[in-house]
Amino acid sequence: MWKTILRRVLLMIPQLFILSIIVFALGKAMPGDPFTGLITPDMDPAVIERLREEAGLNDPIPVQYKNWIVRILRDGDFGRSYTYKMPVTKLIGKRAANTLWLSLLTVILTYLIAIPLGIYAGRYNGSKFDKAVMVYNFISYAIPRFILGLLLLLFFGYRLKWVPTTGSVDLGLEPGTLDYFLSRLHHMILPAITSAILGTIGIVQYLRNEIIDAKTQDYVKTARSKGVPTNKVYTHHIFRNSLLPIAAFFGFTITGLLGGSVFIETIFTYPGMGELFVSAISSRDYSVINSLVLLFGFLTLLGSLLSDIIMTIVDPRIRIE
């Protein structure tokens, strides 16, 4: 098992290399360069040219790539944000923590909703409950993400005023205190629920079908032929085997959340990476955009690595001797 996992981890190296090249190439392909945001019409072109020369923008492309990657790896230097006037790492760091917390809560809610729904719908397929779950699935599938977010925000945020409509924490609270923690939770709950509702669709449907399918498997017939009580047939044989692909999906679920954070955070003006990404694009803050793309790419790779590792642990068939 460890061998399989190690092999999978090593595979990350070429993946990361390719990712870095793609991100670098994208950065080059985008109109303008890190100075575009600074240039004003009254600047002397010669000055701009000097700045470019100093920043190494006139070097051959491979050299630029090398310098870029070395700065990142050696100094952790991703450049500076020209709109926020601070190093990108510092800027993203705080935002990343916010997004991570939001994602964590979303994941917990997603599985808390999806697993019982999928299990009951699958076990009692054809029942009223199952039909209700299918309707739920259909509706949440049909509603676009941002519409659902806006509706919930209008109703619970503006109308009922149960939850704040912006930000990630109330001002003036001391980090580490219970109040601080609760306030964060309060800010996160609505975006998390919105994301979770949408995140459950695939999982519920998949789990339900897996269970219906597992019921007809030969090994379930064997279990029944042994005289295993029906409830135990479900818990020991059917659910466990059906949850396997869901566990493996876990990594990808996280990846999906990162993509979704762009919408959710923008709607709820929640200061995370997704919201930063949107504002960086509108202000053409290239070094921020570039770093975020790199980070999203990295996290995506990490997500699929996680999926594969979970799969290796839970499914004995995958292990290599």
């Binding site: 498997q217 030969d218 090994y219 017939k221 064997t222 279990a223 029944r224 032929s225 042994k226 005289g227 295993v228 009580p229 029906t230 020991h236 044989h237 466990r240 085997n241 396997l244 839970v314 499914d315 004995p316 068939r317």
Partner: peptide
């Protein structure tokens, strides 16, 4: 009923199936 059968199956009547790979739980 299923409950009544469960007292007989495995205990009084043993069953052997055709496809041994599919008939064993891959995860146990």
């Amino acid at each position: 009923s299923e409950e009544e059968f469960n007292k007989i199956r495995g205990r009084h009547i043993g069953f052997i199936f055709q496809d041994p790979l599919a008939s064993l739980n891959p995860l146990h």
